[in-house]
């Protein structure tokens, strides 16, 4: 590679570079022997050729002794065997989470099915429906944790904190209170069952206060919804907001699998280019001629702006074009405890 070092390639000889690019070495990095080699570190489980062990329990022993997946969820996520009442409650929650008609996970699963894929692709895709609006269990649970921390730290009452929270979040899809279940008693029945089983705790109590506060503040009828019921119950069962998010999304994926199968059984596959989008649905720029390529530089408007005022004006203009992304401002968080 000696000749290469003498060549001028693009801007790579520019003295403003903080290094001499041409002197940077090729070749892979030697094995790092100063630290122990990489291993799949896990607190959750290990296996050898003979056994699979989760949080210290041999999983074949678990199933032979009558424990099932619902119990093992407590083992994997909480490192403990659940009380019988807790196992019953999680069963209850999972039944209610299994199927929800033609909701988003089912729709995504069906759309993937139309492309003639493996079932597992459809099941995986259905899980992607769970974000921070639909099935916002992470956002909901962390909201409860923050609310209860205020009760603890500042000696406030639950109802006072609930009222503050509702003032800030009324209408937020992660509140757990909405107008979605005014006629369906299933969410409220879940709390009643949790209380009967003796597994209701501070999260259900706090969520009830949030419901009361929302009912006082809202200008229309609202009540506990399924997100709030499941989220608070799972937290009282000891699951973290993130574990809840995962468990419920995966549980629904079984239902999405059935939707994949039904779509394949009852509908056709879709070919590339098959679907049309009628012009009635289009509200973008009017049809216009493509200019000759040689006229490009005469016609094209540069994107660069050079002052904050110019930038702001251009930004506002760009927001008007749906699909450009300028109208969306979102926070991409790092949930790591160390990065």
């Amino acid at each position: 590679m000696g000749d290469l070092d003498k060549k001028v390639i693009g801007n790579l000889n520019d003295p403003r570079l903080p290094y001499d690019y041409n002197k940077r070495p090729y070749g892979t990095v030697s094995m790092d022997t100063t630290r122990p080699p990489f291993q799949w570190a896990s607190e959750v489980a290990y296996k050898n050729a003979y056994r699979i062990v989760a949080r210290g329990y041999d999983t074949t022993h678990l199933v032979e002794l009558g424990y099932g997946l619902v119990d093992i969820l407590f083992i994997d996520f909480q490192s403990r065997i659940p009380l019988i009442e807790e196992e019953k409650m999680l069963n209850y929650v999972m039944i209610l989470s299994l199927e929800d008609g033609l909701s988003m996970p089912a729709v995504l699963s069906r759309i993937v099915a139309r492309s003639k894929t493996f079932l597992t692709q459809a099941c995986g895709t259905s899980i992607l429906a769970f974000g921070h609006a639909y099935g916002a269990f992470s956002a909901f649970g962390n909201m409860l944790i923050e609310g209860l921390a205020k009760v603890e730290e500042y000696g406030k009452t639950m109802d006072a904190v609930a009222l503050e929270l509702v003032k800030d979040k009324l209408g937020d899809p992660a509140l757990g209170v909405s107008d979605l279940m005014l006629k369906d008693p299933a969410a409220k029945k879940m709390f009643i069952r949790a209380e009967e089983l003796g597994v209701a705790g501070q999260y259900i109590a706090f969520t009830k206060e949030v419901v009361k506060a929302a009912q006082q503040q809202s200008d229309h009828a609202v009540d506990l919804d399924m997100l709030g019921a499941i989220g608070a119950t799972m937290m009282d069962l000891g699951f973290s907001p993130e574990a809840t998010w995962a468990i419920i999304a995966i549980t629904r994926s079984f239902g999405a699998g059935a939707h994949y199968i039904e779509e394949v059984e009852r509908e056709d596959y879709t070919s590339l280019g098959q679907e049309l989008t009628p012009k009635e649905l289009y509200d973008g720029p009017e049809d216009r001629p493509v200019p000759p390529l040689e006229d490009r530089d005469k016609i094209a408007k540069p994107a660069q702006t050079f002052t904050p005022d110019e930038w702001k004006e251009a930004f506002e203009e760009r927001k008007k074009l749906h699909g450009s992304g300028y109208a969306i401002i979102e926070e991409v968080k790092d949930p790591s405890e160390k990065t």
């Binding site: 959750v44 969820l73 079932l119 099941c123 574990a243 994926s253 079984f254």
Partner: peptide, 16 residues
Amino acid sequence: CIGSVSRGYSCAAHAL
């Protein structure tokens, strides 16, 4: 579906 989605729960624990 039963096999692969059941595995999803433990994979979620490993990811978490």
